[in-house]
Design a protein around this nucleic acid. Sequence first.
DNA 1: ATATATTTTTAGACTAATCTAAAAATAGTT
DNA 2: AACTATTTTTAGATTAGTCTAAAAATATAT
Lengths: 220, 220
Amino acid sequence: MNSFTEENYLKSIFKLSQKTDNGVSTNSIAESLETKASSVTDMIKKLSDKKLVNYKKYQGVNLTKEGKDIAVSIIRNHRLWEVFLVEKLNFKWDEVHDLAEDLEHINSKKLTNQLDAFLEYPKYDPHGDPIPDKDGNIHRHLDITLADLKTYDKGIVVGVKEHSKSYLNYLETINLVLGTEIKVNKIVDFDLSMSVEVNKKESVNISHQASKNLIIKKSN
Amino acid sequence: MNSFTEENYLKSIFKLSQKTDNGVSTNSIAESLETKASSVTDMIKKLSDKKLVNYKKYQGVNLTKEGKDIAVSIIRNHRLWEVFLVEKLNFKWDEVHDLAEDLEHINSKKLTNQLDAFLEYPKYDPHGDPIPDKDGNIHRHLDITLADLKTYDKGIVVGVKEHSKSYLNYLETINLVLGTEIKVNKIVDFDLSMSVEVNKKESVNISHQASKNLIIKKSN
DNA sequence: ATATATTTTTAGACTAATCTAAAAATAGTT
DNA sequence: AACTATTTTTAGATTAGTCTAAAAATATAT
């Protein structure tokens, strides 16, 4: 069995390794876990001894098959619990992350799979992130963001790339939840802010900062 | 915030203090947590510093108001999660203890209360143990066991006093689940074993060992 | 009441995870 | 290629929780 701490390292390494093709650097792990590089080195050695990561000094790390399987199963747990909290217990999408961060470490294949069934095999969590299936397969959607759209393009909001409470909260105040239809009316070339039509109604102004974190499925 | 370990000590002390009026002994805590007396002494000091227990050397411990509140809320969590696992995720009553042991430490009043509402405010867990309400009140039922019944007495099974897998499993094989109607046909005075009618049908033989752990609500 | 047994506490050591500060390796620059 | 800056690792210390073995306190028995 692995400790919560080890599991968090594996999850972090998994997420970071999706952004780079080479090994994941010690510093990037330290930053993502808000800890110090020296602590990371210690843990990497431990994970390496357990054959959960491949590690050569000064070269960064990569997950082994086994390490990756663990990371993915934790992410699966996390996202399933988020769905549960929102769909069944009436939490808001900006309230569920921290709780899921704890719940994800409850380690029981049966629990995970029964929860999955109970929720009727959801494909995405409340933030639009894909839920790995029982075999660890992840169907990620294309990463087109609102910022990538041109004037008069239309699409549907399918996810977010930024998960902070303040961002999610802001989106709700402008009625932007998953599934919302969106149409770009105008792009200000000075600051790249956009005037967009939400659900064929109100036209709101969205900063580049905000638009580049909204994942969109283009509808034409 | 308190660690999982501290919470487990508080829970254990709470349960032990229900059986004795004087302080809870170091050894009894050690036994119930399967640890050593010296470890218990260390932890007691820590809990005492945090004002969660009252402690005088060699005199055993008692929970303070605050310590008791924490213990009760963990028990509330535990029992609500057990209901969830059995009612919603189709677990058997002998499979849920260990998972609930982990889930109980997820610390969120909102989570607990929403879960309680989602489950429609259950009063008892799958083993018949009472679930403390939001304010920590516990309605315990009278502790009449099958072993206390006389010949021809009738009753309904409302709980168990022994939670081991093997016991729960055994009960299921003889169709004894919560809510079952029971009637005592004969008591063997040699070994106090009983011949009982289950749901007005089969007559099974139950050892004293087994009967004294079945909590019954007498029906006449 | 004194000796014996039991319980509880103390003292000191161990492990996991962390940190700071310093040393070593790598990368970047002229 | 040599110097500098950055990254990574090492060395040594710290904290929480645990343990063993020994000492101290309490309980029991004659």
